[in-house]
Design a protein around this nucleic acid. Structure first.
Lengths: 154, 154
DNA sequence: CGTAATTAGATCGTACACGATGAAATCGTG
DNA sequence: CACGATTTCATCGTGTACGATCTAATTACG
C-alpha cells in the first residue's frame, strides 16, 4: 500500500488478483512438494499421474488427460519418462489400436507405500485444519469449473 | 465416488487434494486469460510482469522476482522477450552495475489501456461476486504464505 | 588497501504446458 | 463395401519454471 501511491489511477495491482493468488499458491505447493517428491524421484505432474493410476490402473492416455486437463502433447513425453523410470508400462489396446493403456509396474505400484505420508505433510505445511482444507478445496474447484465452462463456451 | 470402489484402502484421490484444485484452477485461469492476452500479444507471465511495471516503473529484476517468486533464470529470458516486443527497456544501473532496471517504453505504458477491462472479464468468468472473490483470494494467499514459510524453513 | 565473501544477473540442461500439425485406426453414411 | 469424417496419440516449436553453475560488481573485514 506504500507503493500504490505512485499509481494515480484505479487499476488493480498484483496482490488484488485472484489469478495471481492461485498462480503463486501453485508455485508454493510445488516448493513444498519438491523435497518430498525428490525422495521418490518424481516431478509433481508425474506424481499426479501416479495418484491417478493408484486410483485406477490401466487407464488410457485420454482418460488421464481428461482428469488432469492435459493432452497427449504434454502427457506422452511425461509418460515416456515414467516408463523409462520403470514405474509404468504403455501398451496399445489390441481392440482399438489408437488407444494406449497405461499400467503400473510392480515397482510403480510399490511406490505408493513411499508416498503414503505425503498428504499428511502437505496438510501440516498448509497450516489448515482438515475441515478448512476440504472447504477451501471445494471452493477453488468450484471457481475452476466456472472458468472452464466459460473457456469452453469461448 | 463410483470409481473409488476400485480402491480398497484409505489413500486420497486426486479430487481430494487441495494442491490439485489449485493446480487445475491455475490451468483454468490460463485458458480464460489466453484469448484476452492474445489480443495484447502477451503470455500470462509476461502480463504479470507488465502489471507490476504499471504499478511501479523502473524496478530491478530482483524486485520483480521477489513479487512473483521467480528468479533471474526465469525472468531474464522473459524480460528479453518483452524487450524484443518493444514494451520494456533493460538498463544496468550506473550506481551498481550488478543491477538491471526494467522500465516501460511508451508502447509498454500504452498497453495498459488495452488491458484495462481484463479484470472485469475475469471476474465475470469466475462466477463470483467481488466480495467472494476478495475473500477467496485472501484465503488462498494465506495458505500460500504458510506453505512458503514451511518451505523456507525446510 | 586488498582479498574473501556476498550479491545480482545470466546461462545451461531438464521438464512441463500448449497451439498447430501429422499419422494411423476406427466410425458413419451412402 | 468405400471413402470421408472423427478419434487417438505422437511430434514439433515456443515459452515458462527451476536447480546448478558462472561471471562481474560490490561489500566486508583484517
Amino acid at each position: 500500500m506504500t507503493k500504490r501511491a505512485q499509481n494515480a489511477d484505479a487499476d488493480i495491482g498484483l496482490n488484488d488478483m485472484l489469478c495471481f493468488a492461485v498462480y503463486s499458491a501453485n508455485h508454493a505447493f510445488n516448493r513444498v512438494y519438491r523435497p518430498l517428491l525428490n525422495e521418490l524421484g518424481l516431478t509433481y505432474p508425474q506424481y499426479l499421474v501416479m495418484v491417478l493410476l493408484w486410483e485406477a490402473d490401466g487407464q488410457r492416455v485420454g482418460d488421464l488427460g481428461a482428469r488432469l486437463s492435459l493432452e497427449s502433447n504434454t502427457l506422452t513425453p511425461l509418460l515416456k519418462r515414467l516408463e523409462a523410470l520403470g514405474h509404468i508400462g504403455r501398451v496399445r489396446d489390441a481392440a482399438d489400436e489408437r488407444q494406449v493403456r497405461v499400467t503400473l509396474t510392480p515397482q510403480g505400484a510399490a511406490l505408493r507405500e513411499k508416498a503414503r505420508d505425503i498428504p499428511r505433510c502437505i496438510l501440516e505445511a498448509s497450516g489448515l485444519t482438515l475441515d478448512d482444507l476440504v472447504r477451501l478445496k471445494t471452493e477453488i474447484a468450484s471457481v475452476r469449473d466456472a472458468l472452464e465452462r466459460h473457456a469452453s463456451a469461448q
